[in-house]
Write a protein that binds this DNA or RNA. Structure first.
Lengths: 224, 224
DNA sequence: TCAGTTTGTTCATATTCAGTTCATATTTGA
DNA sequence: TCAAATATGAACTGAATATGAACAAACTGA
């Protein structure tokens, strides 16, 4: 069951949002201000948060910042008209998308679904990073219109890195995870696969990510 | 607030465990069988699960496996005497620790705390000082919007200093801690790394801390 | 079955850069 | 003021990584 936190001090809007989302089969946890919203975040396992900017006690910026710091979930912000300047600020602190009041409920629902789709490790076999999509069932990497099938090892390597963006993997860890603990071969094999992956990522333009070398440690996937 | 799931079909044991854990200030979410436990996992944000092996509908193995697949939390299993063979199986699927019935509630509490500590410590790869944040998994230093990746030695040096703010480290101590006791090189190497760190900290504005020289002794991290 | 292709690994070599050293300047405290 | 400690800039070096190519193994389709 997907659970969504709706934080808005205006009861009407709160109910409106909840109504439409419930119709989609989501379970809604409601909060009337920022403090309450944070309390609910701590209590419930939340998949996505819809956050109004203007709220008593703790405003939407503050709340979103805290959510992003402690949870790895998408946040949809609700802004009033004329707060457009703030939008940037919102994205900086990790908002994923926003709607402007008054908004079309259908559009809001669409955005929520898009965010869930984007964030979801769809059936654990599809993950996203930057502009690329990795489909494990097809060993396929795609970006925009182009897509390409990768050799098994290369795919697994990329998939592993992308499954924890930012995390540094040592060669040893990668070998354990992909080749298995009893692999006898050379650690440098990883380097070669990394090189080939980089070539592919270069040929695909606008991938929005790269594999970075952490000298002395290993590799990591990084947005760019 | 730390929230713990207690899954046991025996009401007495469930209450016993809950009682002792509540006394420690934890919030307890209770479940009487595996299915219910999973439902609670989905509903609440759980920090740790205490799981009995023998449960109706979905046994402890199954439950633990699912928990481990979808959540990154420690699981303490409760086994009946004579299930010792199964213990291994339990560890295979990712149990972190177990107690054997009948158990000493004090011991159970101790194990829960140890698990929380262990998991926290492992999450202790991030420390803060002033306005900077140091993420050891990424070798990353960030302050506000900007962040930067440091070379290994520089990072370890900064991390060491910041992990005990105010404490004076001699060059010798730093070398022992970072380079190892068998380092043969020059003590002055520390100075150079300190210098480079200071350059970085200067370029980052508003870091809220500095590395101070204690003439004749060494260095320390200081708020400012 | 067999040539042709793809994938995975190894190896030899080129390149890079973090870490160190060193020479010199500056600061500090008595 | 002076000697000792520390800061600084720059050059060096070697270990780590990147790269190109060759080889081996597995797979493909006729």
């Amino acid at each position: 069951m997907i659970q969504i936190l709706v934080a808005d001090d205006d009861q009407h809007i709160r109910e409106l949002i909840s109504l439409y989302l419930e119709k989609q089969g989501f379970k809604i946890i409601k909060a009337a201000d920022g403090e309450e919203a944070w309390a609910k975040m701590e209590e419930f396992r939340i998949d996505l948060a819809v956050v109004d900017i203007m709220m008593p006690f703790k405003d939407g910026w503050e709340l979103t910042k805290e959510i992003k710091e402690y949870f790895d979930i998408p946040v949809l912000m609700v802004t009033a008209r004329g707060e457009s300047h703030d939008k940037l600020k919102g994205f900086d602190i990790g908002t994923d998308d926003y709607v402007v009041k008054p908004f079309d409920p259908q559009e809001m629902v669409a955005r929520v679904k898009a965010l869930l789709r984007r964030y979801r490790v769809e059936a654990n076999n599809v993950i996203y990073m930057g502009n690329i999509k990795l489909d494990r069932t097809k060993l396929e990497m795609s970006a925009g219109e182009t897509s390409e099938q990768l050799p098994l090892k290369e795919f697994e390597l990329l998939f592993t890195l992308v499954s924890s963006p930012g995390k540094i993997f040592t060669r040893d860890q990668l070998i354990q995870l992909i080749w298995g603990y009893d692999y006898e071969g050379d650690e440098r094999t990883v380097d070669v696969h990394i090189k080939r992956l980089r070539e592919r990522l270069n040929h695909m333009k606008n991938v929005g990510m790269e594999i970075k070398t952490i000298r002395g440690l290993g590799y990591r996937a990084e947005g760019c």
